[in-house]
Simulated assay, not measured.
Amino acid sequence: MFDMDRQVLDGVGRWASEGYRFALITVVRTWGSAPRPPGSWMALREDGLVIGSVSGGCIEDDLIAKVRSDEWRSSLPFLLTYGVTQDEARRYGLPCGGTMELMVEPNPGHAGLAMLKDTIAQGRLVRRTVIVGEPDVGLDDAACTDVLSFDGTHLETIHGPRWRLLIIGAGQIAAYLAPMAQALGYAVFVCDPRTEYSSEWCVPGVPLLAGMPDDVAIELGLDPHTAVVTTTHDPKLDDLALLEALKSSAFYVGALGSRVNSERRKERLAMHFDLSANQVNRLHGPVGLPIGSHTPPEIAVAIVAEITAIKNGVRKNAKSR
């Protein structure tokens, strides 16, 4: 994920500047139950320090032992497999006979990693290609529809913000919601033309867009990798964004408000805007999973949980809050 990419790349940048050697390790395939999905990666320093994760901890312990004993003599990428037998799966904490295959890069190129970091910092998606036994690593532009690919020798991983979140309203809920979404790999944008709120916006890495919400939604080009949440309680702002979002292919559209206000909003959207019944019914409101949330951080947790559920294809039952 985007934020995890940055953590690893920030860490290896520091290590490289301090003169440490390190390895990159990526999950490339799993069978059965495994603690981490393909694409999870970690950096492992020569003295055993770790950034990131490829399992629940037991595999990391074995990897640390290997790097400390200077077991990895080759500088070329190679594969490691854990959990081939039931006994080995239990030893390394892989439940239900799970198996993990890892790509190990004992000596990744520092310049290429710095370039990768700079590119994703610009909000661009990057495809990184590593080949078993080959020293060169490829970096190319990627699309949000691209996914990890591994054919046994060639590994292609996608790095950068594959998902986007547009928040309408620069209030307190947005200030909690934005960094939570960033941690989940979203590029986050906040729109609020009200100077009373926008002048105090200060969440790092989250640009404030001062245009009208409908204009901003159009300019961003809402697509199936975009979620939209309105939080202002002001129909003059929220409804403008919802009008464009509900007509778009955004995978999630939600609006803050009580159940009564949410029903009124749907009636208003159906009556005064050129929206079909199916488009109006796409609106999630009250926004967020029903976790009894009341405070801004609790509401933000509920919202990001619902967005995650929808993104992952988990449909929920009718809720009440």
Rank of each mutant, 00 (worst) to 15 (best):
P207H: 09
A270P: 01
A16C: 08
T230S: 07
P38W: 03
L139K: 05
H110V: 14
R68F: 08
G254L: 00
Y82Q: 03
S249N: 13
H159E: 05
A305H: 06
V203A: 04
I25N: 01
P161H: 00
S262Y: 00
T99P: 08
G19F: 03
L24C: 11
L243C: 11
D10R: 15
H225Q: 12
R124D: 13
G57L: 08
G211M: 11
W41D: 06
P179E: 01
G32V: 10
D146I: 06
L80N: 00
R6Q: 13
R29S: 13
L9T: 07
A305P: 11
S276P: 11
S276C: 06
I218L: 14
K319N: 12
D223C: 13
Y20T: 07
I167V: 14
K311H: 12
W31N: 11
R68P: 09
M212Y: 10
V314D: 03
F273T: 15
A309K: 04
G313Y: 08
D234N: 13
E200L: 13
T232F: 12
S199R: 15
L256S: 02
G11Q: 14
R91M: 10
A34W: 03
F150S: 02
V137R: 09
P37Q: 15
G292C: 06
P77E: 03
I51R: 08
S149D: 13
L237N: 04
